[in-house]
Structure formats: C-alpha cells, structure tokens
C-alpha cells in the first residue's frame, strides 16, 4: 500500500541528511516584464528525498493536478514514488513543479528567460534586488 506523500516526506526527513543544492534557477515572467528576475532555491530536505529515491511522485502527476479544481482529490499524494535522481534531474523536476509552464514550456520569444546557474553566480549584494534581470 502506498502511503501519503506527506508521510513519506516526514519519514525521509527523519532518516536523511539535508542536501543544500549547488544550483539556483533564475527566471523571468514574460507576462510581467516590469517585475525583477526571480530565483528558485531548492529545499535541502526535498533534495535529500529526490537523491535518495522512493519518496517523490512522478512529475507528470503534479502537472496533471494543476488542472484539478481546489478541494478535489489530487493524484500526486498517492502516486507510485519514483527512484533516485541526480542533482541535475532533481533541479529539472523542481523547474517543472514550481515554475509556471508558461515560462519553462510555452514561451516562444527570443529573450532568454530562464537559466540554471551555480549558486556562486547569484549576487549576494541585494541593494538593487528589485532591478535584477537575466543578462542576455
């Protein structure tokens, strides 16, 4: 019997050491060109679960669940868990899960609106944070 995803996450947290990813995902929303670039930061417990395997559901269940109305049962909590991922595969999984498909799948423009970069390339000085944009 497959247990609920939340129970698997709680179990994984109790037995896995957290993993701080060496990657960040920079992205811009083409629907809001005046907004600064966003930076996705992977959660260390999520990364540990992804690298260990047998915790997280297939990514396509999350994508299908985006069209399920609120309050209706979702597919991802009880989906068969996937196996271990590499760190790079886990980042791709997060892009598809936590960033709008309008950015990673549907955008057809010429401007580069998403980049996966080492954390060292993210500025630590936030004086002009609300003016950040992706260098072309």
């Amino acid at each position: 019997m497959i247990t609920h995803l939340w129970d698997r996450l709680a179990d994984a947290k109790s037995r896995l050491d957290p993993v701080q990813s060496k990657y960040r995902v920079l992205f811009e929303n083409p629907a809001e060109p005046k907004e600064p670039a966003s930076v996705l930061v992977p959660d260390p417990n999520f990364m540990a679960a992804a690298l260990a395997g047998d915790v997280l559901p297939p990514i396509d269940t999350y994508i299908r669940d985006q069209s399920v109305p609120d309050g209706q049962p979702k597919e991802h909590p009880y989906a068969e868990p996937v196996g271990a991922m590499t760190e790079e595969e886990a980042i791709e999984y997060l892009v598809m899960k936590d960033i709008s498909p309008s950015i990673w799948r549907d955008y057809k423009g010429n401007r580069s609106i998403m980049k996966i970069v080492p954390v060292e390339l993210i500025p630590t000085n936030r004086s002009f944070r609300n003016a950040w944009e992706i260098a072309q």
């Binding site: 939340w6 996450l9 709680a10 947290k13 957290p18 701080q20 960040r24 907004e35 600064p36 966003s38 930076v39 996705l40 930061v41 992977p42 959660d43 260390p44 417990n45 999520f46 997060l94 899960k97 936590d98 954390v119 993210i122 500025p123 630590t124 936030r126 944070r129 609300n130």
Partner: peptide, 21 residues
C-alpha cells in the same frame, strides 16, 4: 531573505522563490 535566500530547515517544502526584496 538576506544575501542569497536560503532555507535552514523545513517540512513539506520543495523550494522557495526569491521574488524581490
């Protein structure tokens, strides 16, 4: 939220997204 925004610890969180100041 200081420097490069970072998660210290969590439960049932997959990521944070730094949207601005």
């Amino acid at each position: 939220q200081v420097s490069t925004q970072t998660i210290g610890d969590s439960l049932n969180v997959s990521s944070l997204t730094d949207l601005g100041t």
